[in-house]
Simulated scan of single mutants.
Amino acid sequence: MTEPTRASSADAGGIADQLDAHDLAEGSRRLSGQVRIVGSGLLGTSIGLRLRQHGVDVILDDVSPAARSLAIDYGAGRLPAQGDQPTLVVVAVPPDVTASIVARELQAHPEALVTDVASVKVAPLVELRALGADVSRYIGSHPMAGRERGGAVSARADLFIGRPWVIAGHDDISYRRAAAVEDLALDLGATPIEMTPDEHDAGVALVSHVPQVVASLMATRLAAAPDASLELAGQGVRDVTRIAASDPALWVQILGANASRVVDVLRELRVDLDGVIDALDAPEAPGARRAVAEAIGAGNGGVARLPGKHGSTTQFSSVIVLVDDTPGQLARLLTEIGEIGVNLEDLRLEHSPGAPVGLAEVAIVPDQEQRLVAELERRGWTVAGAFA
C-alpha cells in the first residue's frame, strides 16, 4: 500500500480527548455494552482510543502489564475489574497466539462475541475448531490499516477511518450474531467488507504480504550501496521500500501463517522477473525490447485497477510544484489550491538532499489540470511539471 509522505504524526497521548469532525455523539454509536480488548499494541490501542471517543466502556488487557498501563495512560481504556461483562471481545495479539487467546476468551466470557484482528483468517479458524472452541460466537476480522511503527505510542484514534475492515464469516455463525463486529467497524469509521477466510487470505497475500517481501528484498540492495548512489534516491525508491522498516518477528509469523498463498504469488512474480532478466541479458535479441515494454505496460494496467479516493478507479493528473523548504510554504500552497477551487485528491512530498526546495506532487482530476497550473503560476509558484 503506497501512501504519500505525511507530516510527522502526533503521539497518542490525549487523542481520546481530541474530538474532531469525524467523531460521533455517544447517542449515535452502534455498539452497546462493554468492549474488552486483549492486546495493547498499535491496533488494540487505536481501537480503544476511538471507542472511548464514543463513550464506550473499554476494558484493556495484555500479557504485559507495562504495555497495558501505557495504553491506559494514553486513554484507550481501563483495567479489568471484577464483574465485567463484555458483549464484544477484540483479540489484537500476534498471529501465532491468536487462536489460543480467542479460545481462552470464548471460555471466559460465554455471553460475548469474540473477534480477532490478525492479518490471516484461515489458520485461526482451523485451529479453533481443532481445539473444540465454540466458534458459533467467533468471527475473524481484519482492518486493512497500520503504520510502520507499532505499539501504543504509535496508536491513533483515526487509524481506521475510511479503511476496509474485512469480516470473514463462516458456516458456524449467523449474520445476526456477528452483527456487533460490523457495528465495531462502523463506529471506528471503517468500511466493512464481507469475505470468506479463504478469499481474505488470498487477497492479502497479493496486496499486502507479497509487497512486504518485495519491499524488503529491494531495500536489502541498498544496505551495501555506495553513498553516492544513495544520494540520487528519489521518490521512486522510497515508495518501493517504504514498508521495509516493518518488524521482522511479526512478519515471520504473518508470512508463515499464509505461506502457501504467498508462495503462489511469488512464483508468478519470479516467472515475470525471469522474463525481464532474459530480455535485458540480450537487449538486441529479437523480441527483447517488446518483452520489456509489455512487462512495463502490464504494470500500467494493474495499477490502473487499484481503487483510489472513495473506491473510485478514476485516474488523476499530477502537478509538481516547487516549494521553498521554509515554515508555512506547504500550508500556503494547499490553501491557495483551495482558493482556486480545485479539489486535492492526493499529495506526495519529495526532498532532494541539500536542496533548499521540495517538490509537492498534487493529484487532481484531469480536466482541472490546465486551470490549476495557470493559476499557480499567476500566483508566483514554479510548476516543475504536469502529467496524466
Rank of each mutant, 00 (worst) to 15 (best):
S40L: 04
Q368K: 13
R36A: 12
L31N: 01
D172P: 00
D183S: 13
G44K: 05
R149K: 15
A202F: 05
Q368M: 05
A123N: 10
S208K: 07
S8H: 13
G33A: 06
L131H: 11
V93S: 03
G338R: 10
Q34A: 10
D73S: 15
I47S: 01
T314L: 15
N300Q: 11
V240A: 15
S352L: 15
G234W: 07
T335P: 00
S136A: 12
L266Q: 05
V252H: 14
I254R: 05
V263Y: 08
A331Y: 03
A279G: 02
I101Y: 02
P110H: 12
L222Q: 11
A112Q: 06
G338V: 12
T87D: 11
V362G: 03
A81E: 13
S8G: 08
V323T: 08
T45H: 03
Q370M: 08
A202I: 13
L217E: 10
G311K: 12
I320Q: 14
A155G: 05
L31V: 02
T2M: 06
Q53N: 01
S141F: 11
G234P: 09
L206G: 02
G311V: 04
E127L: 12
Y175D: 13
A202G: 01
D17G: 11
L184S: 03
A224P: 00
A360K: 02
P80Q: 02
G151E: 06
G39T: 00
D61E: 07
G189E: 06
T2D: 12
E199H: 12
G146D: 03
I364E: 01
A112H: 10
D367N: 11
H209V: 09
A257L: 07
H209K: 04
H142S: 11
H200R: 05
S317Y: 02
S312I: 01
L266D: 00
E361H: 11
L280N: 02
Q370S: 15
S69Q: 14
Q53G: 02
I364P: 04
Q370I: 09
S352E: 15
G14T: 08
G275K: 10
G48Q: 06
R30M: 08
E284N: 04
L128A: 06
E350M: 15
Y74T: 01
H22N: 15
G354P: 12
D325V: 02
E336D: 14
I59L: 14
S136I: 08
A233H: 14
Q329E: 15
